[in-house]
Structure formats: C-alpha cells, structure tokens
Simulated assay, not measured.
Amino acid sequence: MVIELLKVKVPPAQREKFILKDAEIWTAALAKYPGFLEKEVWIDPNNATEVVLIVRWATREQWKAVPQADLEAIEQKFTQALGFPQNIVESEEYQVRKFPQK
C-alpha cells in the first residue's frame, strides 16, 4: 500500500466547505480509478487553517497511472466549485509495510 499525504492551507472560515467539496469532487473522482482504497481527512483542532488529506492506494503504479489530464480537469472543477484560494503546502508519499504479529 502507498499513502499520499497532502497538507492544504485554507481560510479558517472556509475549512468545512473545503472538506465537503473535496469529498464531493476529488474523492468521488479518485474512487473510480483502480487502486484507490480510501481517503481520510485529518483536522488539527488547534490549527483551523490546515487540512491533511490521506489517500491510500493499493500500489504506486496504480496511483501514478491516473492520467494527468484527468487530474487537471478534476482540479479545475474543484477550484471553480470551491470559490476561494487553497494552497498545498506539503505533498508526501509513504510506503506501508506490515509485519506479521506474533
């Protein structure tokens, strides 16, 4: 499994709208691609300007196989629906390794 981690800065008063539109547009779109497993939204109760998105993919190859043109079209739809600026301030990739439990 591969984890895509995105930290996004948003206006504090618009955080809930961001989360709802993200689920409605981004999560719904990504769920149609092979390898998409799930997405979580993490909220820091002490920082209303930051939203952390955790996307789980079965493999890196499946994640990276999502066409760039599709990503750009989804982003355009999302930005238009959102109606306010948001900025990805961190983008990371993690591989998950599981070990057998005794």
Results as ranks from 00 to 15, higher is better:
Leu5Met: 14
Leu5Ala: 10
Leu5Lys: 09
Leu6Cys: 05
Leu6Arg: 08
Leu6Glu: 03
Leu6Tyr: 02
Lys7His: 12
Val8Ser: 02
Lys9Gly: 00
Lys9Asn: 09
Lys9Val: 05
Lys9Met: 07
Lys9Ser: 08
Lys9Ile: 05
Val10Ile: 12
Val10His: 01
Pro11Thr: 03
Pro11Glu: 11
Pro12Gly: 06
Ala13Lys: 10
Ala13Cys: 02
Gln14Ala: 13
Gln14Arg: 15
Glu16Leu: 10
Lys17Arg: 15
Lys17Val: 14
Phe18Glu: 04
Ile19Gln: 06
Ile19Gly: 01
Leu20Tyr: 11
Lys21Arg: 14
Lys21Ile: 12
Asp22Lys: 07
Asp22His: 15
Glu24Arg: 11
Ile25Phe: 09
Trp26Cys: 08
Trp26Ala: 03
Thr27Gln: 15
Thr27Ile: 14
Thr27Pro: 01
Thr27His: 11
Thr27Asn: 12
Thr27Ser: 12
Ala29Ile: 04
Ala29Asp: 10
Ala31Arg: 14
Lys32Pro: 00
Tyr33Ile: 06
Tyr33Gly: 01
Tyr33Val: 05
Pro34Cys: 11
Gly35Gln: 07
Gly35Asn: 07
Gly35Ala: 09
Gly35Ser: 10
Phe36Asp: 02
Phe36Gln: 04
Leu37Lys: 15
Lys39Leu: 14
Lys39Asn: 09
Val41Pro: 00
Val41Lys: 03
Val41Ala: 08
Val41Leu: 12
Trp42Ser: 09
Trp42Ala: 10
Trp42His: 09
Trp42Val: 11
Ile43Pro: 04
Ile43Tyr: 04
Ile43Cys: 05
Asp44Ser: 08
Pro45Lys: 02
Asn46Gly: 12
Asn47Lys: 09
Asn47Asp: 15
Ala48Gln: 12
Ala48Ile: 00
Glu50Ser: 05
Glu50Cys: 01
Val51Lys: 00
Val51Phe: 02
Val52Ile: 12
Val52Thr: 14
Leu53His: 06
Val55Asp: 02
Val55Pro: 00
Arg56Gln: 06
Trp57Met: 00
Ala58Ile: 04
Thr59Asn: 06
Arg60Ala: 08
Arg60Asn: 06
Glu61Tyr: 03
Glu61Thr: 07
Gln62Thr: 02
Trp63Met: 13
Ala65Tyr: 04
Ala65Asp: 09
Ala65Arg: 05
Val66Ile: 15
Val66Glu: 01
Val66Tyr: 00
Pro67Lys: 02
Pro67Leu: 02
Gln68Cys: 00
Asp70Ile: 04
Leu71Asn: 08
Glu72Val: 09
Ala73Asp: 04
Ala73Lys: 13
Ala73Leu: 05
Ala73Ser: 10
Gln76Ser: 14
Gln76Phe: 07
Lys77Gln: 14
Thr79Ile: 09
Thr79Ala: 15
Gln80Lys: 13
Gln80His: 10
Ala81Glu: 12
Ala81His: 03
Phe84Asp: 01
Phe84Ile: 03
Pro85Phe: 04
Pro85Arg: 03
Gln86Tyr: 14
Gln86Thr: 14
Asn87Gly: 03
Asn87Leu: 13
Ile88Ser: 06
Ile88Arg: 12
Val89Ser: 07
Val89Ile: 15
Glu90His: 05
Ser91Phe: 10
Glu92Lys: 13
Glu93Cys: 05
Tyr94Pro: 00
Val96Ala: 08
Val96Gly: 01
Lys98Ile: 11
Lys98Gln: 15
Lys98Asp: 11
Phe99Glu: 05
Phe99Cys: 00
Pro100Arg: 10
Gln101Met: 09
Gln101Arg: 07
Lys102Glu: 10
Lys102Tyr: 06
Lys102Trp: 07
